[in-house]
Amino acid sequence: MIAEMTADTNGGTNAGISGSGLLARIRTRLALAPDPASLGGDHAVAGLPRPERVLTPAAVLVPIVLRAEGPSVLLTQRTEHLLNHPGQISFPGGRSEAEDAGPVDTALREAEEEIGLARRHVEVVGFLDLYQTVTGFLVTPVVAFVEPGFALSLDAFEVAEAFEVPLAFVLDAGNHTRGSRLVDGRERQFYVLPYQDRYIWGATAAMLVNLAHKLAPGD
């Protein structure tokens, strides 16, 4: 069963960052193609060596919605019954399939399947650093501008909710906090972006921090 909804901004303000200068910065600061030399991951955030293992290619869409009041980032809340990352906040995305032409095709296909975001509303503008997850995926984050006026159709099996976070909140380094937990007897650190009643953490938070670093003024 597919739930119908229209995306809406979930509060917050974007004062001071909504001009064309920021959009131009996004276009010029992001990689034009995935760079194998730019690799982050759960291990890097935790300060641990990179695990040597066979990785499964995957891609996510990092959708920046061009709202009149200022851009926002579209995110999803996963359903609680999923085997991998139940209930977590994530980008639309998933593993690459044989029929995908590349990571962009994977990200766009997954966004269509998971949240019904039609490709005609999406303009790909670049890539963040590749990201290796602790679960064995090599993720390509594909950044795109999304024109308002779209209607989302959520896959109720995978997606409990879709919501938006102001890009101004994401770019503010004061909102980039750290959390930790014990994994196999070792403390593992990760990024957390607490937004209103949302707990954005793990790979999604790390990719948002990577976006903020790339767009930081003066770099």
Rank of each mutant, 00 (worst) to 15 (best):
R120S: 13
L48C: 11
A151M: 11
V192E: 08
A24E: 09
V143S: 01
F91T: 03
F163I: 12
H81I: 07
L61R: 00
N84M: 15
G21W: 15
G185H: 06
E187H: 14
P71R: 01
P57I: 15
F137W: 10
M1E: 11
R188W: 15
T76R: 15
M5H: 05
M5D: 06
E4I: 14
L211I: 02
I89N: 03
L108P: 00
N84H: 13
P57S: 13
L61T: 00
A162I: 00
A46Q: 07
G174L: 05
N84A: 15
D100K: 09
R178C: 06
P166M: 04
T28A: 14
F169M: 05
A216K: 15
A156K: 12
N210P: 03
E113N: 13
M207F: 01
G136D: 13
T204V: 05
A206R: 00
I115H: 02
S153I: 09
E164A: 07
G12I: 03
S72Y: 07
D197W: 04
A3V: 09
R181Q: 13
V104L: 11
V104Q: 09
F91H: 08
E80M: 05
L74R: 02
E161R: 04
W201Y: 15
R181M: 10
L82W: 04
A107M: 03
Y199G: 08
A203T: 08
V122R: 05
G21M: 14
F163H: 05
F169I: 01
F137E: 11
N14C: 13
V159H: 00
V73G: 03
E123H: 11
E110K: 01
L211T: 01
G126K: 04
I115W: 07
V60I: 02
I200F: 01
Y191L: 03
Y191T: 04
Q88C: 10
F190L: 09
Y199V: 13
I200H: 00
E112S: 14
T204M: 01
G126S: 07
I2E: 13
G41I: 06
N10M: 05
L138N: 00
L152D: 01
